[in-house]
Design a protein around this nucleic acid. Sequence first.
DNA 1: GTTCTTGCAAAATATTTGCAAGACG
DNA 2: CGTCTTGCAAATATTTTGCAAGAAC
Lengths: 137, 137
Amino acid sequence: MIARLLEERGIRATANRILVAGALARSGRPLSLMELEDMIGSVDKSGIFRCLSVFKEKHLVHAIDDSEGTRYELCLSHGPDSDDDTHVHFYCERCHRTFCLENLHIPPVTLPKGYDARTANYVLKGVCPYCNGYSNA
Amino acid sequence: MIARLLEERGIRATANRILVAGALARSGRPLSLMELEDMIGSVDKSGIFRCLSVFKEKHLVHAIDDSEGTRYELCLSHGPDSDDDTHVHFYCERCHRTFCLENLHIPPVTLPKGYDARTANYVLKGVCPYCNGYSNA
DNA sequence: GTTCTTGCAAAATATTTGCAAGACG
DNA sequence: CGTCTTGCAAATATTTTGCAAGAAC
């Protein structure tokens, strides 16, 4: 249940927050502010924005950078203190949606000395199965 | 020489284009529209924008998506018909610059059936050597 | 009643386009 | 000349904040 999830992360479960987190949970893919706005309708964009800010702070969501800007994704796989969600994403240039490739972990690279990485963003771009005619995918 | 580079890609070497391409070449890292604007000064942002549009079309630059939006990088490693530039980038959360890790090729992943990838964007985020005190890096 | 949350409007940013003047071939 | 390019201003798009009213504790 969404409300419980929020509380577990120390976020008060208000109506808006339940709607936003619920939309993210149901969609199964990262959503932009605008996508959330369209999807929810009843909540003003500033409200969505503020929900996302709280979620980000509490590490309930993390941000994906793709061609459209930023999308937000629930990260449920870990505790409230880290961002260890590290799968590859796929941005479809045809339908402009971004998908999670849950099973594809981002292959790590060895950084040159001095670089200190905290998070990784690996996004492939091309055409998704739905736009490709693989509607059975 | 920059002018020749442009001509080779079928781009007329105008003053603005030489300035923009030159700035990208000199910087050695991907630059955002705003960074280019600051760096060049004499060219209006719309001019820079249009230069970048042409460059993109001719595959002289390609785009990196990072936390700040889009940055542009010269891609010299290939012919005029493809975008095969595939190294990892590093976005510094302290100084907000993005670096090329030229030697780190993006490790390929095997996509599920139906996905058809054209380009890849792999950006690590954290603290760069300069902000880390590795000034000798 | 004090603090947190929300909606609306508006500010702040960033990107993109229209258009007339100028450069180029 | 006709086409391409440029600068300026302005339109778009997007993200973020101010503020007063309302809800929660």
